[in-house]
Computed example of a mutant assay.
Amino acid sequence: MNKWLISTFAAFLVISGLAACAYQDQQQAKENESVPVNVSNQANHHTQSYKDVEIFNPDKEKIGHARLAQTPKGVMIQLKVSNISPGVHGYHIHETGKCEAPDFKSAGEHFNPVTKEHGFENPKGYHAGDLPNLKVDEDGMVSMTTITKHVTLEKGKANSLVDKDGSALVIHEKADDYKTNPAGDAGARIACGVIK
């Protein structure tokens, strides 16, 4: 009888542990769904409206472009840029649609309509304008598509990128560490494009 009880209790512990792990994995998946993600397959994203953005460097030279499109899954940002240093660069949506060279400080801070802190790894974060880092090839080029559900191109909403002063896409000189407030210790702004 005692052996049966011990075996039953051990089986119960194993099943409980498996259930807890499954629940934890499910919760983590839900959290990850809310973080902007890079996507390679763009075929299944029906677009409703879009904005084209020209990207400039501090010398006022056009170095790339982006297209932002409203989709059922959020705003899809297709970015292509060249002539920037190889490596990892911070990449964000900023609150003001101004890109005055050479420092692009006119773009203001990160787009943050719900007043959070910065960074995907920050327990108090993250900004609606936080995006995954860009990984630039040795030839100085990058092409990346990201989808974020925290912003919209619909006018009149608090998280709209097309409010009265617009917004901007900004690339930084260094990688975003995803935790340091207010900008991930990503350094100077090296490229900017106005979202009108």
Rank of each mutant, 00 (worst) to 15 (best):
W4G: 03
I6H: 03
T8V: 13
A11V: 06
F12D: 02
V14Y: 02
V14C: 09
L18R: 00
L18Q: 12
A19S: 14
A19K: 05
A20R: 07
C21V: 15
C21F: 07
Q26E: 12
E31I: 04
N32L: 14
S34R: 10
P36T: 09
N41S: 13
N41Y: 07
T47H: 05
E54G: 07
I55N: 08
D59C: 02
D59A: 14
K62A: 09
I63H: 09
R67F: 00
R67T: 14
A69T: 09
A69R: 06
P72A: 03
G74H: 12
V75T: 13
Q78K: 13
Q78T: 15
K80L: 11
K80S: 11
I84N: 08
I84F: 08
G87K: 10
H92P: 01
H94T: 01
H94N: 07
E95W: 01
E100P: 00
F104I: 03
H110T: 03
H110V: 03
N112A: 01
N112R: 04
N112I: 08
P113W: 05
V114D: 14
E117Q: 15
H118F: 14
G119N: 07
F120R: 04
A128S: 12
L131E: 08
P132V: 09
L134P: 09
K135Y: 02
K135W: 02
V136E: 04
D137T: 13
E138S: 14
V142Y: 04
S143P: 00
M144Y: 06
T146H: 01
T148C: 05
T148G: 02
T152F: 02
L153F: 04
K155Q: 14
G156I: 03
K157R: 10
A158Q: 14
K164A: 11
S167Q: 05
V170N: 02
E173Y: 08
K174V: 00
K174D: 13
A183E: 08
G184E: 01
D185K: 07
G187W: 12
G187N: 05
A188K: 15
R189I: 00
C192L: 10
I195S: 05
K196S: 14
